[in-house]
Design a protein around this nucleic acid. Structure first.
Lengths: 142, 142
DNA sequence: CTATAAACCTACTTTGTCAATAGGAATAAT
DNA sequence: ATTATTCCTATTGACAAAGTAGGTTTATAG
């Protein structure tokens, strides 16, 4: 399984906020309830989103979260990368990786590079705005 | 990291056998040495390939392994699936998964289905024959 | 028929990550 | 002052990944 709950929950959190932030801040508790995710666990995830500058937080009564930018400016790929770390399908492609000593003779490097590319490109195509209101029935083949 | 050593080593093992099986069986020890992989660990991996009908094994002196079919008939996807299990990027897409209760309202299902598709399609394009002799320098953009 | 080289088999270990849980401290509105 | 919220630190249990250890069986060569 390539995408963990961290990435998946983060995406669901952001979409939920996008859909409910009309006027006011959206409290974590509400999102957790709507999405059926543990509050405490969501906190950990949301903390990273705040630190990463994806979310604005407001403390105290009446507080909560809202997006820092319009939903079209959140690519799914960037959100997932923030939560999961590099999405490279194999370790040797990770950023800041010292090149593997067998690289010059590797039969599979090209394969993995291509895989990395198709994944990356696919995920970069989508933004939060694409996900908002999305439902399986209304699925459009892209 | 989506592809573990099991899948990666299996692929490298099969390619190595494909490249060396001209006449005789290829002993595991030789592959392990050439590929710089622990013999004992490779054993575990190879056992699954034999059980899965990908490899023919011959015991005793002069024994070793050879492919059961021509290299063009081994898709990378099928090899990886045998070793890694389902390649689905999220659990809810795995085969024989009971549908998630939130499915009807899920904003991300379509996203994951599409991701699963591009990964699957990409990996199905390649066979062992494509990997044999492959080297990064000779990389061809597909 | 014995030595050797190979596959085969069962079990164990170590390490790390995932997915939470627990319990509170700081802050803002009413 | 009360309440509703975010923020912070620490801990836990389960599981899998990656590898190790030590032996048994089978075929070939001399």
């Amino acid at each position: 399984m390539m995408i963990s709950t961290k990435g998946r929950y983060a995406l669901r959190f952001l979409v939920d906020v996008a859909e409910h932030q009309a006027e006011s801040f959206v409290p974590l508790r509400d999102v957790a309830e709507r999405q059926g995710i543990s509050e405490k666990y969501l906190e950990i995830i949301v903390k990273e989103l705040v630190k990463g500058g994806e979310l604005e937080a407001m403390r105290g009564k009446g507080g909560g979260y809202r997006l820092n930018r319009p939903p079209e400016e959140y690519s799914v790929r960037s959100v997932l990368e923030r939560m999961e770390g590099p999405l490279a399908p194999v370790a040797c492609l990770g950023p800041g990786q010292k090149p593997c000593p067998r690289q010059a003779d590797c039969r599979t490097l090209t394969l993995w590079q291509g895989l990395d590319r198709v994944i990356s490109d696919y995920l970069a195509e989508f933004t939060l705005a694409d996900l908002c209101g999305e439902r399986p029935e209304s699925a459009v083949t892209r």
